[in-house]
C-alpha cells in the first residue's frame, strides 16, 4: 500500500518537474493566430460581425468567443479560408449579421452635402475628405464599402454604388457546362 503511494508520489513529482520546467521554457507570448485570422478578414471595418472592427473580431475568433461565419463582406470564400486555417468545419454564413452584397463604394451627392463632418468621423479608414462647412468627397480607391458613413449623414446624401464591371476589372466566369444535351 505504502509502496503504491510512494510510486504515485514519485511519478507525480517527476512529471510535475518536467511540466513545470517546460511551462516556463515554452511559454507563449501574445497570440500569433490573431494576425493570421486578421489577414484573412476583408478589413472593411464595417462592424457587421458585432465587433468594432476586423482586428477585434479576429481576436474574438482566436479566443473562441466568436464564430467564423459572422463576416458578410468576406462572404463564403472568407469563411472557408477561416475554416481552413482553424481546421474546423465550414458553416453557412450567419444571416443575423447581414447578407453578402456586391462590392460597392460610397458616393456623396455633392449638391446635398452640408459639410457636417459626421461621415468623416465615421469612416474607419479615413477615406472621406473635406472639412467643416465644406463638401465632403469619398476617395473611391480607398473606400472599403463598409456603409458606416451612410447612417450618420443628416441629409442622406451618401449612397452605396456597386462597382461596375469594366474591361479593367472584368473576370472570366466559372465555366458553365450545358447539360441540356445530356439526357
Amino acid at each position: 500500500m505504502i509502496a503504491a503511494l510512494l510510486v504515485m508520489i514519485v511519478l507525480a513529482l517527476l512529471l510535475g518537474l518536467v511540466l513545470g520546467y517546460s511551462a516556463l521554457r515554452f511559454k507563449v507570448e501574445g497570440d500569433p493566430l490573431v494576425d493570421k485570422i486578421d489577414a484573412i478578414l476583408p478589413q472593411t471595418q464595417c462592424g457587421q460581425c458585432g465587433y468594432p472592427g476586423c482586428k477585434p473580431y479576429a481576436t474574438a475568433i482566436a479566443s473562441g468567443e466568436a464564430d467564423i461565419n459572422q463576416c458578410p463582406p468576406g462572404g463564403e470564400p472568407g469563411m472557408r479560408a477561416l475554416a481552413d486555417l482553424l481546421g474546423v468545419e465550414p458553416k453557412p454564413l450567419n444571416a443575423e449579421h447581414g447578407e453578402p452584397k456586391p462590392k460597392s463604394t460610397a458616393v456623396i451627392d455633392e449638391n446635398l452635402c452640408i459639410g457636417c463632418t459626421l461621415c468623416i468621423q465615421a469612416c474607419p479608414v479615413d477615406a472621406i475628405l473635406g472639412a467643416a462647412k465644406h463638401m465632403h468627397t469619398v476617395i473611391a480607391s480607398e473606400c472599403t464599402g463598409c456603409e458606416l458613413c451612410v447612417a450618420p449623414c443628416p441629409v442622406d446624401c451618401i449612397s452605396m454604388v456597386p462597382i461596375p464591371e469594366k474591361v479593367s476589372n472584368w473576370k472570366w466566369r466559372y465555366p458553365v457546362i450545358e447539360l441540356k444535351q445530356v439526357a
Binding site: 504515485m8 511519478l11 507525480a12 512529471l15 518536467v18 511540466l19 517546460s22 511551462a23 515554452f26 511559454k27 507563449v28 497570440d31 500569433p32 493566430l33 493570421k36 486555417l85 482553424l86 481546421g87
Partner: peptide
C-alpha cells in the same frame, strides 16, 4: 499518468513552435 504528462509536454511544445498546427489539431 505518464502518457498524460508526455502529451501535456508535447502540447506546450507545439503551441510554442506552430500555433496554426496547434489550432488545427
Amino acid at each position: 499518468v505518464v502518457i498524460a504528462g508526455v502529451v501535456q509536454f508535447t502540447e506546450m511544445v507545439i503551441e510554442k513552435t506552430s500555433p496554426v498546427l496547434y489550432q488545427s489539431l
